[in-house]
Amino acid sequence: MPAWKVFEQAEPEFAGRVRRLFDAGRHKTIATLRADGSPRISGIECEFTDGDLRFGSMTGARKGADLERDPRFALHGPTFHPEEGKERDWPGEAKITGRAIPAGPVATAESDEQPDGQMFVADITEVVITGLNAEATKLVVESWTPHRGRRTVERD
């Protein structure tokens, strides 16, 4: 599975729009799988650094334990509802799915001895932008996977 930079090289314009949607707000939502297989939704922050999509989990957080046990995740960027009468201005929303690969401990300057959590790097399986067409009359779902490439579907 590819790192963010592989997706960025394959689809630079699409990747730029995804990144702008993710950077539009600080807080994102991540879905992980609990030990019993049921879903868990958690707030999270992420960053695009050195060609990678990275996110962390604080020591003792359930999402980190979920990812260590089953690395599959779905990450949803900040959401903004289309304003009535201004639907054409809605930028849409972005989602990224994949597997979280442990990338080492996270420590703050105050705590050099004890790690404050675990950092993960995303191996990406799919990237999606959901938005509206230019007339704001149809839902447009743009997606990319490493095996299929890019696809666009319009729905009424």
Rank of each mutant, 00 (worst) to 15 (best):
Q114C: 03
D112F: 05
A103H: 02
E93Q: 08
T108W: 08
K63A: 10
A31Y: 05
V128M: 13
V106K: 04
G77V: 07
G56V: 06
A74R: 08
V106L: 06
G77F: 10
L33W: 11
T97D: 09
P78K: 01
M119S: 06
G51A: 05
A65E: 12
A103N: 04
S38I: 02
L75S: 14
S38H: 13
E68M: 11
D70S: 15
T49W: 14
A103T: 02
E47P: 02
E84Q: 08
R99Q: 11
A94H: 00
G131W: 10
R99F: 11
R69F: 08
G43R: 15
L67W: 13
D70K: 14
T59G: 03
D66N: 12
F120V: 03
A74V: 15
E110F: 13
V128H: 06
R62K: 14
W90T: 02
D116V: 03
E87F: 12
T59N: 10
D36T: 06
H76E: 13
T59Y: 10
D123K: 04
G60K: 11
A100D: 02
G85K: 09
G64R: 08
M119L: 15
M119F: 00
D70I: 05
D70P: 04
G92P: 01
P91S: 11
D112I: 04
I30E: 11
R34W: 05
A61S: 15
R69A: 10
I124G: 00
P91I: 06
E47L: 04
H81K: 07
L132S: 02
A65M: 07
A100F: 01
L33F: 06
D123I: 00
T32K: 07
S38R: 14
L53Y: 11
K95E: 09
Q118I: 02
P102E: 01
E110V: 09
F80N: 12
T125V: 05
S57Y: 09
A100R: 05
T59M: 09
E47M: 08
F80A: 14
K28I: 07
R88H: 02
V106E: 03
L75V: 12
A61E: 14
G104L: 01
G117W: 06
